[in-house]
Design a protein around this nucleic acid. Structure first.
Lengths: 218, 218
DNA sequence: ATATTAATCAATCAATTGATTGACAAGCAA
DNA sequence: TTGCTTGTCAATCAATTGATTGATTAATAT
């Protein structure tokens, strides 16, 4: 994710060579913007079409129904989330800690540069409660995220980076709750939150090592 | 809050003697139900009126506009939240810990018995981003909650129940994030989450006392 | 050259939606 | 009784909304 901290972020997603895909993508991005501004409550196909610079009938040509448009956007966001959260090699002495920090870094990035992304995800999260198709995609997204965190926790405990007296299965909901809380409330003190979380879950051994390393550098 | 864990919960809110207030309340409760089922996206004045058993024109008699209805419900929920979260005397050796546990207890209660309440609050939270009037009420609600937690943290640190090496101002966003995360994700492992949170923030002294007390009882 | 398909739009439809109007009945005051 | 206020509803309005139709143009295939 850190690699994509640029202006382009997630927009170029469908094949830009394909004219058909281009317009389709433009409509999806327009839908994203409208939802970000007005929520699902204010999502109007006309607004989406106008924003994409096409006629309302053209929208229905690419997305037969409003529901198709919504599901298309859900899949777009889901796919992008997986891409951005994909496993990346992070060479370091504390791979688990690095991944934890990456997670916070991602949170900071969205909060600072693309809060509308978190907002739209919340909109979808809420809509999923009454829309099985959306829920399915949302569940996949969450499962992917959960698996990543769970793996991180297990690795961290296995290599002695994280405390061993918190069961992996219990540490996960803890982190998940913290991350979700950050995304929703937009915690202003995310740095302090990160620091304290580390203080909490790092093993004494890893703490000492880190202090030593930092002490040597400073 | 624990005292109100009954079937009536928060419904009897306005003066039931007043016929005018009765109808008004019925409309607000109907609106609550509609939002719980269909979200703001699906909130229709007709549905609310029908549910309350009155004509659409009667709804507009009590609430001139849809916006008035929404703001009325926001205030209703806000007021009830303050009532339910009001400071209650909790005689115990660990007042701060008791309040912490009460907070988790409240979370469990809503998740188990009234998840629709959390859902509607989320709907309002999201709507607040584009509705200043709603946001104002929501902010008051959150400020009240925050103050309570902040006070709890300060008391807990002052009387030695909580760790003193975490600044109160840093412990607060931590708990806030955890609570929010629970409400949103509906964490299934809320019990484990509570246990680990306690392990985290309790001071060593308080832990020993608790262990002793529990050991003596069991 | 001709037929077919893809892409687009202006115009329109049928249904919905928030809100209003005008009428009526019950309660209350003068 | 008379007149005013409150509460309620059937009917209606004007605007919106998701979706369709029919026509047109450009590209592609035969």
């Amino acid at each position: 994710m850190a690699d994509s901290h640029n202006g382009d972020w997630w927009r170029p997603l469908l094949d830009p060579e394909d004219e058909h895909g281009k317009r389709r993508a433009a409509l999806l991005h327009a839908a994203f913007d409208v939802i970000a501004e007005a929520g699902f409550e204010g999502l109007r196909t006309r607004a989406v079409a106008t924003r994409a610079g096409v006629n309302i009938a053209t929208l229905h040509y690419y997305f037969p129904s409003k529901q198709d448009l919504i599901e298309g956007l859900a899949q777009l966001i889901g796919a992008k989330f997986v891409t951005l959260h994909g496993p990346a090699p992070r060479p370091s002495g504390f791979p688990a800690l690095d991944r934890l920090r990456q997670e916070f870094s991602d949170g900071r990035f969205y909060l600072k540069h693309h809060p509308e992304m978190l907002l739209v995800v919340q909109e979808f999260s809420l809509r999923g409660k009454r829309d099985p198709e959306v829920q399915k995609i949302f569940d996949q997204m969450n499962a992917y995220w959960r698996d990543g965190i769970e793996q991180m926790v297990q690795e961290g405990i296995a290599d002695g980076t994280f405390r061993h007296d918190i069961p992996p299965r219990e540490m996960f909901p803890l982190l998940m709750s913290i991350f979700t809380g950050i995304a929703v409330s937009g915690a202003g003190q995310i740095e302090a939150l990160e620091r304290n979380t580390e203080t909490w879950i790092l093993s004494p051994k890893a703490k000492k090592k880190l202090e030593k390393r930092q002490g040597g550098k400073q």
